[in-house]
Amino acid sequence: MIQERSGLTRDDAPALPPEVEQFVKEVAERPHPESYLIAVLHRLQNSVGYLSREHLNAVSVRMKIPAAKVTGVATFYHFFTFTPRGRHRLSICMGTACFVRGAGAVLARLQEMLGIGVGGTTADGLFSLEVARCVGACALAPVLIVNEKVYANVKPEDVPRILEEYGFDRGAKRK
């Protein structure tokens, strides 16, 4: 994801959101400050929505951890994302219970209709598609989460109706 060397120094690294900056300062005083790297990345993603190269470099400078290591940690964990997400985030649960009850067919229908793969965002920035590990709502399987709203017992034929709730234009997408 991050290929170029940044060559950034303390002075020209971009600013982090104030609450992240504050947290970095706080943990610097605690024992093992470098162990808070993942916690810092969580706060950064919470605040900005994704981890940009510039922000990762800024974390490297502020926490005095090599940029290669910061990037290595960030890319190891599935939770972190490096591209901005769509306005509506679709997350289909692929836990075993959802899988057994047919989440695969729902995912296939979502991909077909949106024309994007898992992790992708539609060209108009309206939808992004993710696969969740298990949201723990196994009794409602298969589960589709759009932003914060949970759709239970979703079948492939429910997909068009759900997408249309969020402004999906069927005619426009098909051609």
Binding site: F76, H78, F79, F80
Partner: peptide, 8 residues
């Protein structure tokens, strides 16, 4: 509390 970040 320490948070994981989605690595099984």
């Amino acid at each position: 509390i320490r948070l994981g970040a989605g690595a099984f």
